[in-house]
Nucleic acid binder design. Structure first.
Length: 719
DNA sequence: GTGCGACGATTTTAG
DNA sequence: ATCGTCGCAC
């Protein structure tokens, strides 16, 4: 068989990776070096040249999008659908394994997945039930506590704590949360992984089975794996299976959510792989690459990698310092307008920023200039409130004992069942070991509720019952349609929200019916004996869908630096490059965090193919206050020779010429040398707030950096 | 039980 | 500024 097409358009390093004969492989793949291509060709190579059965291949990614893309590309390359091939996310694969072995890991086969919002609500419920102070134990923080322990593989019993300590109470909440999940057959995202790891760890027969099955395991974005994911990889690899690991330590930007870059080094230690570096970049100009290389060079402890390209030098990086954030937005959009005027497409342009709040100004100007745009971020389809409401009804039809679903919609739409009534139901359920649904039925029968509440609760139960009956033999789409109609969610939202908002919700609910109509149950789910409904519910949790209902074909892309990872654009703007914003203030204090910010900057820069703008503003509104700040340290890390500064003479438009208000602080500008009676000499580093609230940050020569209230600081300007 | 005004937190986010 | 949660008045 002629397999040259698998190797023809690969460079040496890529070819070496694709055809590696023995042992494990670590592919350090720089930005834009063709790593997906290498993964896809590797899979095809194994199947076509080594006649490895697709059944014995496992390819793991982090996002559904990446998994989908890989599946599509493998299929096209092999010109067939590789049946039996497992390509999926860590969570998707674990979900599949748990469905097949639900009983063995102590889960009912109707187990449901909690998404993060469900989990948050449940954690809050538990804290309230324990009558703990939500100020002392904020649900968000406890949720983080639970997840990070699970991601380290720890059950409540394995967490060290002193008796009666704060930590002890956190552990107690974790334990009760877990008990609740067990009782109700609920599994959060981290639990999907943890249960699977426990299954493989504690059941030698199962471990042997899957170790025999997956002779080749390929993992993408390895630098993003957490402790649990690495444990899973090791369990599946066993002694003899071959690992093909692709990653880039310089693009590790998710340390804050549990990712362990060290896993790359651990992998090295544990498996002694052959290391192949993909350093030839096919995306950016030489200028852009060199700048990115020089920035990332400021980090220590890198595995070492230097991107290069055969491409041309390209344009210099353009640096623009605006007076304020408004002017920055004007400038950016004016440059995008130039690009479009010169024949470029809006979708070639991406504005990247550190935090979502920054999108607003860009949106305003884009709207005014009538340039189509799309903002990434915000809620995705299956995370929207109305969709989650409808899904809760579906879950109740599927399983009337689903307490989280019950709590969500017992009074949505409002039917006169308040917190008191729900509390009584909860209490009864707990006392009798029942689900909330059972408890409600019993309470009504026993007259255990006030007449009004009882009537309302009965109406709710009848609605669910009636939906169950009406949809017994109905298709999924018919069921969803019945839920949307009979729940009267549309009217409920119409009555309490502005018309446009309510209309959008109505449209989303209609879209949900369409989604149900076009839903095809995955073959494996059918094999695992799942009902179509069960598949649909799982899928909704595992794959929350797109951020925006309508996909604009050709529009300017606005997104955070994090969500830009993996993407590329001819024209890129890195906006808001200011100390305190990027690197973010919260990251400046810790060195590890700062290195991660720098990697984020590296990721941002390497998104650009042709033209890169770096912009910052002297002042911007943050949380309703005007703040002044210096350009980001990352700007100074780009060699001057690669940069063209634009500030002098630029005017975005006549109306905004001259920029905004200047700092009013009695000549105390950024960089001004000052003297303080107690702290001595220093330099102004930052200014924030106005009038009596104004504060000033001064870096003192001997006393270090201090924040002072300007009104009391009595700073003396040194000539 | 429901609806409005005060209060406080506010980086990044896939599954 | 803005959003979500909480407490109090209807």
């Amino acid at each position: 068989m002629d397999v040259s097409h698998l190797l023809d358009d690969l460079n040496d390093a890529q070819r070496q990776a694709v055809t590696a004969e023995d042992g494990h492989l670590l592919v350090l793949a720089g930005a834009g070096s063709g790593k997906t291509r290498v993964l896809v060709h590797r899979i095809a190579w194994l199947i076509q040249v080594h006649h490895v059965s697709p059944m014995s291949l496992l390819a793991v990614t982090f996002t559904n999008k990446a998994a989908g893309e890989m599946r599509g590309r493998v299929g096209r390359l092999l010109n067939l659908r590789p049946d039996g091939l497992w390509i999926g996310t860590f969570h998707g694969i674990c979900h599949r394994l748990l469905r097949m072995h639900a009983a063995e890991v102590g889960l009912p086969d109707t187990f449901q997945i909690l998404d993060s919002e469900d989990q948050y609500r449940l954690v809050r419920r538990v804290i309230r039930d324990m009558e703990l102070d939500e100020g002392e134990h904020p649900p968000r923080q406890v949720q983080g506590f639970i997840n990070s322990h699970k991601e380290e593989g720890r059950r409540p019993k394995q967490i060290e704590h002193f008796d009666r300590s704060f930590q002890a109470r956190q552990v107690e909440i974790y334990q009760r949360y877990q008990d609740y999940c067990e009782r109700s057959g609920l599994v959060d995202f981290a639990e999907l992984l943890l249960r699977t790891v426990e299954l493989l760890r504690d059941r030698p027969d199962r471990r042997a089975h899957y170790q025999d099955r997956f002779g080749h395991i390929l993992i993408d974005e390895f630098q993003d794996t957490n402790t649990l994911q690495y444990a899973l990889v090791r369990l599946l690899a066993g002694e003899k299976n071959r690992l093909f690991v692709v990653g880039d330590d310089d693009q590790s930007i998710y340390g804050w959510r549990g990712a362990r870059v060290e896993n790359v080094a651990h992998f090295n230690r544990d498996f002694q792989p052959e290391i192949i570096r993909l350093e030839q970049n096919y995306r950016s100009t030489r200028t852009i690459l060199e700048a990115a290389n020089r920035v990332i060079d400021h980090n220590d402890d890198r595995m070492g990698k230097n991107l290069w390209t055969e491409g041309e030098q390209g344009e210099p990086i353009r640096l623009f310092g605006a007076y304020n954030a408004e002017e920055e937005a004007e400038f950016v959009i004016a440059r995008i307008q130039d690009w479009i005027n010169q024949g470029g497409r809006p979708s070639d342009a991406a504005v990247l920023y550190r935090s979502n709040a920054q999108s607003r100004l860009f949106e305003q100007v884009l709207l005014r200039e009538d340039i189509p745009y799309r903002v990434y971020g915000g809620l995705r389809f299956f995370e929207r409130a109305e969709i989650k409401d409808a899904m809760a009804y579906l879950r109740l039809i599927h399983n009337p004992h689903d307490d989280t679903a019950f709590e969500r919609v017992i009074n949505v739409p409002a039917r006169g069942i308040g917190e008191q009534t729900v509390a009584r139901i909860r209490e009864h359920a707990r006392a009798h070991g029942q689900s909330l649904g059972q408890a409600t039925t019993e309470l009504i029968a026993q007259g255990g509720l006030p007449p009004r509440a009882a009537r309302s609760a009965a109406v709710f139960l009848q609605l669910i019952e009636q939906l169950v009956k009406a949809t017994e033999s109905a298709s999924l789409a018919e069921t969803v349609s019945a839920v949307v109609r009979q729940s009267e969610l549309v009217a409920w939202y119409q009555g309490r929200e502005p018309a446009d908002r309510a209309e959008a919700r109505e449209e989303n609910l209609a879209e949900l019916v369409r989604a149900a109509d076009s839903f095809h149950q995955p073959f494996e789910d059918e094999q695992a004996g799942l009902s179509v409904m069960a598949s649909f519910l799982s899928q909704a949790a595992l794959e929350a869908g797109e951020h925006q209902a309508e996909r604009w074909e050709d529009c300017v892309q606005l997104m955070t630096l994090h969500s830009a990872k993996g993407l590329e654009f001819p024209l890129v703007f890195l906006a808001g490059m200011e100390e305190g914003l990027f690197p973010h203030q919260k990251s400046i204090e810790e060195p590890g965090r700062l290195a991660e910010e720098r990697r984020l900057c590296y990721v941002g820069m390497t998104r650009a193919m042709q033209r890169l703008y770096v912009t910052h503003a002297e002042s911007r509104q943050t949380y309703g206050q005007t703040n002044f700040s210096r350009p980001s340290r990352f700007i100074a890390e780009i060699p001057d020779s690669l940069v063209e500064s634009i500030r002098p003479g630029f005017r975005a438009s006549p109306a905004t010429a001259g920029g905004g208000p200047r700092p009013e602080s009695g000549g105390l500008r950024l960089g001004a040398p000052v003297r303080h009676a107690k702290f001595g000499f220093g330099t102004v580093v930052s200014l924030e707030g106005q009038g009596p609230n104004a504060r000033i940050q001064v870096n003192f020569e001997s006393a270090g950096s201090k924040w002072l209230v300007l009104a009391y600081a009595n700073l003396e300007l040194v000539a």
